[in-house]
Write a protein that binds this DNA or RNA. Structure first.
Lengths: 209, 209
DNA sequence: TGACAAGTGTTGGCAGTGTCAACATGACTC
DNA sequence: GAGTCATGTTGACACTGCCAACACTTGTCA
C-alpha cells in the first residue's frame, strides 16, 4: 500500500469530501485532467467507488468543487500580490504585479487553471462560482484604480462603474498569455517569449468606438 | 436508419479516413469534444468499432487530424480576411480585420477551436501541426507589416525577423478574448462586452523592458 | 493467369469508466 | 432506547479505447 493511500478503520470516513478534493487537486497536476477518475480517487482514499456520489451529484460537480477551490487559491494569490505591505519591484504597477501573480499561479497548477477556465464553469450552479467572481472583480478593481489614477488598495465599490470592456481586454490578454504558455502552443523551435515580462505589462486598449 | 448514416455495400469503405474526419468535425460541434467517441463515429459511418485504427494510431492521433483540418480552415479564413480585393470596413486595419476573422472562426466552431488549442497539440508529430504553424506565421507577418508601416499583403519572408514578443502578445490577446467568449466565462449578469469590436482592436504592447 | 503480400475491415474480448438501485452501517435526535 | 437520516458498500449496466486474431479485397509480379 502506497504511503499516499489511507485505509479507513471506521465505516464512516468523516472528511471524505475534503479528502477527495485534496487528492483530486493532486491527481489533476500529476496525471492530467483527462486521466482523473473518481473511481481511482475513491480507491486511493480507501472508500468504495460510489462513495463520492454521497457528496457530489456527478463528476462534473466534483470538478466544479475543484475549480472553486482553485479560484479561492487564485484570489488569495492575486490579493497578496497587491497587498499594501508587499515589497514591489522597481517601477512595478499593481496591475503588472497582479499579472505576474496570475501567471505564476497558472504555471504552478496548469491543469487546475485549465479546469477553472473550461466551458464546464458556465454550467455550474452559483455556489461553485463565488470565488471565480471575486477573482474577476479583484482584477477589475485594480484595473479601474490604475485607470482613474487612484493609488493604494483598489476598492471596486467606491470606484464607480468600471470600464468593463477594458477589464475584459486585460483579462483576455493575460488569460491568453497563460494558456499559450502552459498548453505549449508556442512553437518550440522559435525563441521563447519572455513570459514573465509579458505578464507584467498588460497592454493598453485603444479607446473609442 | 438515419439519413446521416451510410451503409457500405462493399467490404472496403474506400474513403473511411476522410469520412471519419468529416463526421468527427460535425460531432465535435454537435455533442462536444468530451462526448466524441470513435466507436460511435465508426457506427454512424457504417463500419466496425475498430476500423478507425487502420487509419489512426489512437484517438489522440485522430483528434490531431481534426485539429490540423481546423488549422487549415483557420488559415483559409485569416488569409481571406486580408486578401487584396476584399472590401474593408472604414478605417479597418489588416490586423483588425484578421482579429475579427479569427473571432468569427472560433465562434462558428467553438469545440474545434478548443481542440486546436489544447495541450494535445504539443504532443503531436509535425505532420499534424503544419497548418497551425502557417496560421501563426500569417498573424506574425500581418503584425510585422503593421509595425513597420508596410502596406499591402504582408510577407513574413521579406520583413526581416519579426518582433516575436509583440506577436505573442497580440496572439495572446485575441486567443484569450475568443476563449472567454466561447467558454462562457464572462459573468452573464454583467453587460456583455462588445466582442466583435474588441477583436478588431488588437492593443499595443508597451515596448521596452 | 495465379500465387503472394499488403491494406483494410471484422469479431471477440479486456480493462477501465460514470452512474444507478438496493442494501448496510453508524451517528444524531427525541 | 427507537427511529431517522447521512454516509458508505455491493453488484450491475452501458459505455469507452484498444488489442489480437481472423477475413476479405486489391494490387503486384513471376
Amino acid at each position: 500500500m502506497s504511503e499516499t493511500e489511507t485505509r479507513k478503520d471506521t465505516y464512516h470516513h468523516g472528511h471524505l469530501r475534503e479528502e477527495l478534493i485534496r487528492r483530486g487537486l493532486d491527481a489533476l497536476e500529476q496525471e492530467g485532467a483527462e486521466a482523473l477518475s473518481l473511481r481511482a480517487l475513491s480507491g486511493s482514499a480507501g472508500v468504495s467507488k460510489t462513495a463520492p456520489y454521497r457528496h457530489f451529484k456527478d463528476k462534473e460537480e466534483f470538478l466544479g468543487a475543484l475549480a472553486d477551490e482553485g479560484y479561492r487559491l487564485l484570489h488569495e494569490a492575486l490579493a497578496a500580490s497587491i497587498a499594501p505591505g508587499r515589497k514591489r519591484r522597481r517601477a512595478e504597477t499593481p496591475v503588472g504585479a497582479m499579472g505576474r501573480a496570475y501567471m505564476a499561479f497558472a504555471v504552478s497548477r496548469p491543469a487546475l487553471y485549465r479546469l477553472m477556465n473550461s466551458p464546464l464553469m458556465c454550467r455550474l450552479p452559483q455556489e461553485y462560482t463565488g470565488w471565480a467572481r471575486k477573482s474577476l472583480m479583484l482584477l477589475a478593481g485594480t484595473l479601474e484604480a490604475a485607470r482613474t489614477g487612484a493609488e493604494g488598495s483598489p476598492d471596486v465599490r467606491q470606484a464607480g462603474p468600471p470600464d468593463l470592456d477594458a477589464t475584459a481586454a486585460a483579462w483576455a490578454y493575460i488569460h491568453g498569455l497563460v494558456l499559450i504558455r502552459i498548453d505549449g502552443l508556442y512553437p518550440t523551435d522559435l525563441p521563447e517569449p519572455d513570459w514573465d515580462r509579458l505578464a507584467g505589462v498588460v497592454p493598453e486598449l485603444p479607446t473609442g468606438s
